[in-house]
């Protein structure tokens, strides 16, 4: 599913160079709901960007769904993002001038799918995620939770084997967040998808199968959640150096 080996990535911020990943290794071989945890600046978001094909590693290999992303051309990477993965962001990142329906349908329109296929699939997803009544509403007429569900529907449009979520509940209240984590877990189970969520919240990781701990641009370790509660997750996280 996902194999990162000895991955290095450095960013330039103005005059400063920041080494975000320093030889990170991570492997996920099966479907499920996984969390990547780490402090701010640990490199977890960078890991997600590389795995989702949003950026390229300076060194090492990034293989997702059997594809070595470093070997793909720009246009191949674009198609990869369109068809092979789904991405959910913290800030929802919906197009403000499009309705919920149009936002979900967007990748299919870009891909040139037939109208009938788009209509059927989008309505199906909106119904599954319980936001059908918002189909004709723009983002500014929806709550944060509803917007995030629209974003998830968009990410699931082509039933990708992998779905990445970057702090998906960062802008939501606790109740809505809880519902969203459960939703992601359900999707991973029912659709046999690999859902990888970047988070710094132990309460989020409780819903996951495994947790990968990142610190200082490297993987510190991994543990099974297996019935741990939030404090249990926090404790194990700290033990691994998170």
């Amino acid at each position: 599913m996902l194999v990162l080996q000895n991955v290095h990535k450095t960013y330039r911020l103005g005059e400063t160079r920041v080494q975000a990943l320093r030889g990170l290794d991570l492997r996920i071989d099966e479907p499920g709901f996984f969390a990547v945890m780490g402090r701010s600046g640990s490199g977890k978001s960078t890991l997600l960007h590389l795995a989702a094909g949003l950026d390229r590693a300076d060194e090492g290999s990034v293989v997702v769904g059997g594809e070595d992303l470093n070997k793909l051309s720009e246009s191949q990477l674009t198609l990869f993002r369109r068809n092979r993965i789904g991405i959910v962001f913290q800030k929802f990142n919906l197009i403000s001038t499009m309705t919920a329906f149009q936002n979900v349908a967007l990748p299919a329109v870009i891909d040139g799918r037939p109208r009938e296929w788009i209509d059927t699939r989008v309505n199906e997803l909106l119904s599954e995620l319980e936001i059908s009544e918002r189909a004709n509403h723009r983002p500014d007429a929806m709550s944060g939770g509803e917007q995030q569900r629209v974003a998830i529907a968009r990410a699931m449009l082509f039933s990708p084997p992998i779905l990445f979520a970057d702090e998906p509940t960062g802008n939501l209240d606790s109740g809505t967040s809880e519902r969203l984590w459960k939703l992601l877990g359900r999707i991973a189970q029912e659709q046999q998808m690999t859902v990888i969520m970047v988070t710094h919240e132990p309460a989020a990781a409780v819903h996951c199968k495994d947790v990968f701990v990142i610190a200082d641009g490297k993987t510190c370790g991994q543990f099974e959640v297996d019935g741990l509660d939030a404090s249990g997750v926090a404790s194990r996280y700290q033990q691994l150096g998170g």
Binding site: L54, R81, I95, L106
Partner: peptide, 10 residues
């Protein structure tokens, strides 16, 4: 950038 993220080509 969102469009690029969801797979719109340059």
């Amino acid at each position: 950038a969102i469009l690029r993220c969801v797979g719109t080509g340059r």
